[in-house]
């Protein structure tokens, strides 16, 4: 039955073709092309350390990204799904336990009620969620001329293009082209859908001090905070890639064994046919 083994080879070949294709489809930027009828600018691909199949986060980059978030983004944007303890967990920025305590302790959170029935302020503990800059959405809108700064916990998965998009947005502020009307309180941005964004340019060269020798440029800030937001959205990515490698090796060996077993079993049938024919 030559035709059968040809088909098997074909299947194996198709799989071999499909695998790198799937693996190359980058995590955050993997979604299909956006639907037509809307003005979605082209988002350039950036090179990231966490690209599948073997990518990992760059701890130092995530730590710098957290600094950018803490000093700039967190003034308007919440990250309500993250806790301070996450900053010390494996596969993330991996701050030391001491550093996590200090980072949490710098923030005052509301707790209570105490025995007297009163709410009180205390320094945050690692188990606390990130404190949100505004108590509710109305307050946030009120402070930002009507626009609501979105929560950033899963933003890297909630936008077409993922970290590439965030980087493009943060570096996409330009002078509007001639004839382009920018509405009151809006800013021209090459990466934003419709090119008018309420967020003023948040970063510029030198606004945050870096202590590890990385150049304090807008480009580096944008890159680092994009990587940090990708980690925040996908904190188990490293575990996933590492487990994936083991599972794939196991499965491929299993597949080969199954193929050989299958061939051995079906050869019996061919022998039976041959003896009958003789």
């Amino acid at each position: 039955m030559r035709s059968l083994s040809r088909l098997e080879l074909l299947m194996a070949f198709l799989l071999a073709l499909a695998l790198p294709g799937v693996a190359l489809a980058e995590d955050g930027s993997s979604a299909a092309a956006p639907p037509l009828g809307h003005d979605y600018p082209e988002i350039a691909h950036q090179s990231w350390s966490f690209t599948p199949p073997f990518g990992t986060y760059d701890n130092a980059q995530l730590q710098r990204g957290f600094r950018v978030y803490k000093e700039v983004c967190s003034n308007c944007h919440s990250m309500r799904l993250l806790s301070y303890r996450n900053l010390g967990e494996p596969g993330g920025p991996e701050f030391s336990p001491k550093a996590v305590e200090v980072l949490a302790g710098q923030v005052q959170v509301t707790d209570g009620p105490n025995e007297k029935g009163e709410m009180f302020q205390r320094p945050a503990r690692p188990s606390d969620r990130f404190r949100s800059p505004f108590a509710n959405d109305q307050l946030a809108r009120n402070a930002n001329s009507g626009a609501l700064p979105p929560d950033l916990s899963v933003i890297a998965k909630a936008r077409e293009g993922g970290p590439d998009y965030i980087y493009a947005l943060l570096t996409g502020y330009r002078q509007p082209p001639a004839g382009f009307e920018v509405a009151q309180g809006m800013h021209y941005n090459a990466a934003f859908s419709g090119h008018q964004v309420a967020m003023p340019p948040p970063l510029s060269d030198g606004v945050i001090a870096y202590t590890d020798g990385t150049k304090p440029t807008l480009d580096n800030y944008a890159r680092d905070v994009s990587a940090y937001l990708m980690w925040a959205a996908e904190p188990k990515l490293e575990e996933r890639h590492q487990t994936g490698a083991r599972v794939m090796i196991f499965l491929i060996v299993f597949l080969v064994i199954m193929y050989l077993a299958k061939r051995t079993v079906w050869t019996r049938l061919h022998h039976r046919d041959a003896t009958h024919a003789a």
């Binding site: 098997e8 299947m11 194996a12 799989l15 499909a18 695998l19 799937v22 693996a23 489809a25 980058e26 995590d27 955050g28 993997s30 979604a31 599948p52 199949p53 998965k157 996933r240 890639h241 487990t243 994936g244 599972v247 794939m248 499965l251 491929i252 299993f254 597949l255 199954m258 193929y259 077993a261 299958k262």
Partner: peptide, 20 residues
């Protein structure tokens, strides 16, 4: 054999492009 081949594709998506 076919099932394992199918699982290879399934696992590749789960581990490397889960939001594809």
């Amino acid at each position: 054999f076919a099932l394992v081949a199918f699982i290879v594709l399934f696992a590749a998506i789960v581990f490397y492009a889960p939001n594809l």
